[in-house]
Design a binder for these strands. Sequence first.
DNA 1: CTTGACTCTAGCCTATAGTCTAGAGTCTAT
DNA 2: ATAGACTCTAGACTATAGGCTAGAGTCAAG
Lengths: 133, 133
Amino acid sequence: MKIGQVAKTAGVGIDAVRFYEREGLLAKPARRPSGYREYSPDVVVHLRFIRRAKELGFSLKEIRELIALETDPEATAGDVKQLAENRLADIEERIRALQRMRRALRKVTEECPGDGPTSRCSILRTLSKEGRS
Amino acid sequence: MKIGQVAKTAGVGIDAVRFYEREGLLAKPARRPSGYREYSPDVVVHLRFIRRAKELGFSLKEIRELIALETDPEATAGDVKQLAENRLADIEERIRALQRMRRALRKVTEECPGDGPTSRCSILRTLSKEGRS
DNA sequence: CTTGACTCTAGCCTATAGTCTAGAGTCTAT
DNA sequence: ATAGACTCTAGACTATAGGCTAGAGTCAAG
């Protein structure tokens, strides 16, 4: 298969495929005499793996680690689980940070009258106010 | 005040102060004959405003808009509220996206035994599996 | 007057995950 | 054989929010 076809079938961009190759997430494929990359259909599965891992919040760096674990006979399921748990902890932290923002933002928007001069708006007043932090 | 002192007092980096000036979030200050920036202590308040707005999830671009609204006599509290509500909607969307990731990630980590070869790990199996999306 | 701390500008570098471009060569169907 | 679609490389560019560096000049204290 040529690169355009694997990319389309896997649902990623052509540039992404070449990018993953450069970044070591994808093995270098065979080349035709012309220089064109020649892929086995298995690569589509591999690309989908990458796409799904991204959807779970893994960075490309971590995905590279997942791939390394997958092919390392010494690695255990615990190693993989550890990576996933790190991701989980990070996602939970990000959720908490966003929830804090949401709470603060809700508070100020509720207090803003929604009309009149900007000086009446609690949002700007809150931001200008002296205080801790 | 010199730049180092305002930066320290406001709790931001010196480079950030110069960066905000370049980006139009901070008025260009007076200069000493030597070329040194000479700040009024008010700038510290302004820098804290920026910092707090960042903590609420506003981007510098939006903060620039907030500042413009603050000084525009035509602007209303409603304009400011609108910006805050946009921010809120975006934050809520990001929370939902992270919660979806969390759910999926919890599911696979719970199913992973935590020991044995990686082939026993549901995480890798899930990622490799064919399926929708 | 010297020393150490501070400041100036311009411009390059960081991380992330690719996207886009130019210019050249290739593939395939008709 | 030729048109149109595809692919190759290298390198520049996107967005965000600054950080870092060099080399030159300045400030304040002893």
